[in-house]
Design a protein around this nucleic acid. Sequence first.
DNA 1: TCAAAAGTGTTAGATTTACACCCATGA
DNA 2: TCATGGGTGTAAATCTAACACTTTTGA
Lengths: 224, 224
Amino acid sequence: MTYYSEHSKVWVSVDVIIFGFDEGKLKVLIGRRQMDPGRGEWSLYGGFVAADEGIDECADRTLRELTGLKNLYMRQVGAFGSVNRDPGERVVSIAYYALINVKDYDEKLRQEHNVEWIDINSLPPLYSDHNEMVRQALRRMQLKMRTQPIGFRLLPQLFTLTQLQRLYEAVSGQEIDKRNFRKRIKDMDFIEKTELIDKKSSKRGAALYRFNKKAYYEDPNFKL
Amino acid sequence: MTYYSEHSKVWVSVDVIIFGFDEGKLKVLIGRRQMDPGRGEWSLYGGFVAADEGIDECADRTLRELTGLKNLYMRQVGAFGSVNRDPGERVVSIAYYALINVKDYDEKLRQEHNVEWIDINSLPPLYSDHNEMVRQALRRMQLKMRTQPIGFRLLPQLFTLTQLQRLYEAVSGQEIDKRNFRKRIKDMDFIEKTELIDKKSSKRGAALYRFNKKAYYEDPNFKL
DNA sequence: TCAAAAGTGTTAGATTTACACCCATGA
DNA sequence: TCATGGGTGTAAATCTAACACTTTTGA
């Protein structure tokens, strides 16, 4: 049974832009390409879509393969399919972006896969059209972040308000007024202050907060 | 030269959600599927990506094939690639949406292709995941329309403010206050009032306006 | 003469922005 | 004791939303 046999098939791959937040900077996980063509060039991590898997499943599998983590936040950026985007063969690639807490990523696994966290503002030239994928992924993530509380995916479960503010500054690329920021946060009941104090970041210590998912679904008024 | 031969290839197609505005309603161009499987079902118009064309070129070609029109506004919605989305074979499809002025579409061509303008709020069940494609395309278009003056692509070159308002109401799905709307329009210097009067829509007649692309690029302050 | 659509301003309320000082603590 | 990051409120400006009547003219 072959319905579309007069048309030609192409390879379809998935490339993942993995965002992390560390040292006050927004970072992307990239590595040296391990196959030809382009072996050794800086590249996003990716993989080919198998005959019996959907593209979302492929993205999940690829991400888990690299990070060992499940249930990460991931969204599609879009399809990239210029004829000559891949120097080897005709490949259409679907880009996804994912958010992870850098601390959750096992250091050994990172080294095994030979990938590194690079500041998004200092990315080297990447393989094929991967720089463009990163640009588009960032734009998408920025937009999403204004209206959905996904930033917490880049932070530990407990975080200080300064950390949260630095995160939003790093993602949006612009400074935020401390008092106005904290005022807005106070209005969101699903960002809960805990009794715990973080003593690492300052002498005085800063209150640790937590994102309450359940409270968010009951009253999802997020707007930054 | 075969780099990726251990991986399997799939068919890649393009499906186009063509939006039009007519009789105060937002409409989509759909037709009866002309091939197996699913022959006769309501469906978006689409086509397969050839080995030597990029996906954007494929979308352009598909759109021109159907409408005979060039330089239409078109944007990618995303890739759809569940394993079983197509009942015949494994096909990954990239959805695009396009905006056209219904009046520019040659009636004869429309009949030849056997497609119809259907109110987006009264769409029948469509082939495969096409209903979902339309939903996502609409959402994308709505978002874009708030910050970019793309609505004019759905109207004749000359239009009245009431037409423009009805368009925005149809796209956003909610009523807009007439006075507030016209106030905002007045602030945009690139929406120019002409000397011409439209006498079709009312006894009194309404001023016809025009979108000045050049003026927009000089001072792109659009916000609705 | 009247029905139908065009056109026009004001005001209250809500939201956004700008801005500076005291606090607690470890070194 | 002092340097460092934590924490707090107010006022002006801007933006948004609500709202009703007059005009023109073809039928």
